[in-house]
Simulated scan of single mutants.
Amino acid sequence: MAWSGKSHPHRLLLTKQFPLGLEVLPVFQPVMLAANRIWNSCAWHSRETFRQENRWPTEAELKAKFKSFAAWRELPPQIGARAC
């Protein structure tokens, strides 16, 4: 389950996970690696900002900082909007 976005903040979405065969891995691997690089960068930057300034960066700050990364351009537009 996951909470819906800003359009429906009090709506809980039911999601289902299902296994995919290894033959589809090459299709998703570039996107998964790009998202992983952005997530790790956001997590590292967030911890460093908290350590140095005793505050957590906002979502807008993270997006502004990492939007120029090459990995961001590798993501589909729907994912890139929610990467950090």
Rank of each mutant, 00 (worst) to 15 (best):
L13E: 07
P19D: 11
L62G: 04
W72Q: 05
E59L: 13
M1L: 08
Q17I: 01
L62H: 06
R55K: 14
Q29C: 02
R55L: 04
P30N: 07
T15A: 05
L25M: 05
W56D: 04
P57E: 09
R55S: 02
F50Q: 09
T49Q: 10
E59M: 14
L13K: 07
Q17K: 13
F50I: 01
W56C: 02
P77R: 15
Q29N: 07
T58A: 01
G5P: 06
H8R: 15
E23P: 02
L25I: 05
F18C: 04
F50C: 10
M1E: 10
M1F: 06
W72Y: 09
A83W: 14
L62S: 05
P76V: 07
G80E: 03
L14R: 13
L13D: 00
P77V: 10
T15F: 11
W39G: 01
E74M: 08
A64S: 13
T49S: 04
K63H: 14
A34Y: 14
Q52D: 09
W3P: 01
P9T: 11
H10T: 09
P76T: 10
V27M: 10
N54D: 11
E61R: 08
E48T: 05
S68F: 09
K16W: 10
A35Q: 14
V31L: 08
E61L: 01
I79D: 04
V27R: 14
L12K: 15
V24M: 03
R11D: 07
V24P: 05
K16P: 04
I79L: 15
E53M: 03
K65L: 06
P77Q: 13
S46C: 01
R55H: 07
C84Q: 09
L22A: 10
K65R: 15
R47T: 06
L14C: 09
R73C: 04
P77T: 13
N40S: 08
A83P: 00
T58D: 04
L12S: 11
Q78E: 05
G21F: 09
K67E: 15
A35Y: 15
S7F: 07
F28D: 00
A70L: 04
W3A: 11
R73L: 02
L20Y: 00
N36E: 01
R37C: 03
P9N: 11
V31G: 01
K16R: 13
C84L: 09
P57Q: 10
R55C: 03
R82K: 14
L62Q: 08
A60V: 11
Q17V: 05
W72P: 00
L12M: 15
A70N: 06
L75S: 04
R37P: 00
Q52V: 06
R37V: 07
A71P: 01
H8A: 07
W39D: 01
T58Y: 08
R47Q: 15
F69A: 08
E53H: 09
K16E: 13
S68A: 14
M32P: 01
K65T: 03
V27N: 12
L14K: 13
T58N: 02
L14V: 08
P76G: 06
G5F: 00
C42Q: 06
S4G: 01
H45I: 05
E61F: 03
G21M: 02
S4D: 04
G21T: 13
N36L: 02
L14D: 05
W44K: 15
A2I: 12
R55V: 02
E53V: 03
A64C: 01
W44I: 08
A2F: 10
F69H: 11
L12T: 12
S7P: 00
W39Y: 09
A64I: 04
P76C: 07
W39N: 03
C42K: 09
I79G: 01
P9Q: 10
